[in-house]
Write a protein that binds this DNA or RNA. Structure first.
Length: 219
DNA sequence: GCATAGAATCGTCAACCACG
DNA sequence: CGTGGTTGACGATTCTATGC
């Protein structure tokens, strides 16, 4: 769509599909750090450690804070399992207390699981990611206990719980995607305003020039 | 450095809608 | 009519800017 075409009505779906023309400089916790932003580099932007830290942060955010990352679970050295709220993922991953030995993140698009075995390795950008099982087969069977047997009340409870978790996970990701699209839509509108304002200014100047020309001719 | 207000972001719920 | 996707609303949490 031509951003300068003001005569076309704006439909939400069309705008959502369009790539934003205005790239807003943002650096909020939920978004990836802008390369031009030095806020995360500390006091010395040229410092090598600081640069590496920024790379690590970008990697961590890419993996755990964007739309591809689902629920996040850690297993500590004593075997305890911890569910980590989405908002705490990034901080947890980059400054982990208690040295977890394993971390899991469900990959929504293909149902695989990302596994990090070593905090230091992962935060250094060398995170190992591989497929463990699909939720539809391995994990769900492990949770159900005995596939093929008659459903017991306990089984039904577990099944209901699993369904709820699945629904929550999907809705979580849907909300993320919805917000992303909304942001994009707003950016498109802002860009449209900028283009139309510029166009308006040009037309006003053009009109003024034509008026001057006309006045000189009639004199 | 600390306290605080406001902004930003997130997960969840509920309502709505489209589809099979 | 059940199911799943989308999105507004809400409360919780985190981040950021500002004043002291």
């Amino acid at each position: 769509m031509d951003a300068g075409d003001a005569s076309q009505p704006i439909t939400q779906s069309a705008e959502y599909e369009q790539a934003p023309l205005v790239i807003c400089k943002e650096n909020t916790k939920g978004d990836l750090p802008d390369s031009s932003t030095s806020a995360h580099l500390g006091d010395s932007p040229n410092d090598e450690d600081a640069k590496q830290k920024l790379d690590v942060e970008i990697s961590a955010r890419n993996i755990f804070n964007n739309s591809n990352a689902g629920p996040f679970i850690s297993v500590n050295q004593s075997g305890g399992v911890q569910f980590i709220p989405c908002q705490q993922r990034y901080d947890t991953f980059t400054s982990w207390p208690g040295s977890p030995i394993m971390q899991y993140a469900v990959h929504s698009s293909n149902g695989t699981y990302i596994v990090s075995e070593d905090k230091g390795q992962a935060t250094a950008g060398g995170m190992s990611a591989y497929q463990i099982s699909s939720p539809a087969s391995g994990l769900s069977q492990a949770m159900d206990g005995s596939p093929g047997s008659l459903p017991s009340p306990q089984h039904l409870t577990v099944e209901a719980s699993r369904k709820r978790e699945l629904r929550l996970m999907k809705n979580r990701e849907a909300a993320r995607e919805c917000r992303r699209k909304k942001k994009e839509y707003v950016k498109c509108l802002e860009n449209r305003v900028a283009v139309l304002e510029k166009q308006n200014k040009t037309l006003i100047e053009e009109l003024k020039a034509l008026k001057d020309l006309y006045c000189h001719k009639t004199e």
